[in-house]
Simulated assay, not measured.
Amino acid sequence: MDLALLRTFVTVHRAGSFTRAAALLGLSQPAVTSQIRTLERQLGRPLFLRRARGVTPTTIGDELAHKAAPHLDALVEIAESGLDDESAERTLHLAGPPEFTAERALPALVEPAGEDGQGFALRVSFGNADDILDGLAAGHHDLAISTARPRGALLTATPLCDEEHVLVAAPRWAEWIGSEALHGKDASALEHLPVVEVHESLPFVSRYWAAVFDRRPAASGTVVVPDLRAVLACATAGAGLAVLPRYLCASALDQGDVVALHEPAVPPIRTYFLVVRTGTLAMPHIVRAYEGLLLAAAEWS
C-alpha cells in the first residue's frame, strides 16, 4: 500500500475535510480526493461519508486511522530526527494571545538554553482563540497557546496553566466604595464605578460577575482598549475598575498602584492550552518549545 495515500488519508481523517487536508499537505483538493478514492478502491471499502460540510469517517475509516496513524507519526519522527543537527536553523511559528504570549511564553522560549542555543528561530503571531486555532489547523502556525480547547482529531491540546482573575482598581476607588462595602455576592457597591475592558461585551468583567456574584454587570465600558496591559495602565491611572489576570497585575498590587476590590473564596480562573496539529510533536523544534513551555509553566504562580 502506498504510504503517500495513507498519509493523505490520516490527514483527512484528522482534518475532517478534504479542503483543509489539501492545505496542510500542500496539494490541490482534487488531488486529495483522487488519492482517497484510489485508497478506497484498493481496500474495496468506503473510508469517508461525504457531508455538506466536510467528511465523516466510516467505521472502516476509523479502524484504519487507529492502526495507521501511530506508525506514520513514528516515520515522521524518524525522518525529522535526521534534522536534529541542523535544528538551530528551524523556524518555530508560534501563535497566542498577545499579553500572555509576551509576558509568559516568550521569556520562557528565548531565555539562554545552553551552548547549542534554543534549537529554533521564532516567529510569533497574536490573535484571539478562534483565529489562532483556525490558523494552526490551516498550517499557518506550528504551536498555539489558546484559551479554548479545540474539538476534533486534527488538533491535540494539553493544559498549560490556570490564570486567576482579580477585580482591581486604583486605591481612590477602594476608598470611595469603602473597605466593608463588598460582602459575599453583593456587587451593588460596584454598580456606579466606571469599567475598563478589552471589548464592548465586557468579557473579563462579565465572566467575573457570573462566577462570583451570580449576575451580569450593570455597567458598560467606560474605557475599552484591546490589550490587557493597556487596561492595567488605565486602571492604575484611575480610569475605573478592571478584571485582570493576577500574573499581569501582581507587581502593581504589590506596589499599591492598584488594590483588589474583592477577594472571593474561590477566584475565577481561565485555563490556557498548548495546541499542536496531531502528529507534529515528532518534529524536534516543536517538541522543544512544547516541553519548554510545560516546564516553565510548572513554576508559574
Rank of each mutant, 00 (worst) to 15 (best):
R53F: 09
E89I: 02
R53C: 03
T91R: 14
V76T: 13
A121M: 15
P112R: 06
P112S: 08
E63M: 06
V55S: 11
V110Q: 02
G114Q: 11
R37N: 04
V124C: 12
G119F: 04
V124Q: 11
N128F: 10
V55D: 08
R53P: 02
E115L: 07
L92N: 04
D116N: 12
S34L: 14
L43S: 01
A108M: 06
T101D: 05
E99Y: 10
N128Y: 14
E99R: 09
F100C: 06
P107K: 08
T59D: 13
G114R: 11
E86A: 10
E103K: 09
G96P: 06
L106W: 06
P70D: 01
T101S: 10
R53K: 13
L83D: 11
A79C: 03
L75I: 05
F48W: 07
L64P: 05
Q42C: 03
A95K: 10
A79K: 00
L49E: 15
P98Y: 06
L92I: 01
I60W: 10
V76G: 06
L49Y: 13
G119T: 02
A121K: 15
L106P: 08
G117V: 05
T56D: 14
L106S: 09
T56E: 15
T91Q: 13
E99S: 15
P70G: 04
R50H: 14
A79S: 11
E63N: 01
Q35H: 14
G127E: 11
G117W: 04
E77Y: 00
A79G: 11
L122C: 03
A74F: 02
L109T: 05
L43V: 01
E111V: 09
T59K: 08
R90F: 10
A52R: 12
A108S: 10
I78P: 01
E111G: 00
F120R: 15
A68Q: 08
P46E: 15
N128H: 15
Q118P: 02
F100M: 14
L72N: 06
I36D: 01
P98D: 12
L94I: 06
D85S: 11
A88D: 13
A102R: 09
G117Q: 03
S81N: 00
R123N: 03
G117M: 05
G61L: 06
A121H: 15
R104Q: 13
T59H: 03
L122N: 06
D62T: 11
G96V: 05
E111Y: 00
T101Q: 06
I132D: 11
E40K: 02
T33Y: 07
F48E: 07
V55I: 11
A102F: 01
A79W: 00
R45L: 12
L75A: 13
E99N: 00
L75S: 08
F100P: 05
G61K: 07
H66G: 12
L92D: 04
A74K: 03
A88T: 12
D85I: 05
K67M: 13
G54Q: 14
I132K: 07
L64W: 02
V124K: 09
E77V: 01
G54A: 00
L122P: 04
V110K: 06
F48N: 09
L47Q: 03
F120Y: 15
A69T: 03
I60T: 10
L43H: 02
R37V: 00
V110L: 09
T38H: 12
G114H: 09
I78S: 01
R53S: 13
A52I: 14
R45P: 02
A129L: 07
S34G: 01
E115K: 13
R104Y: 07
A69Q: 05
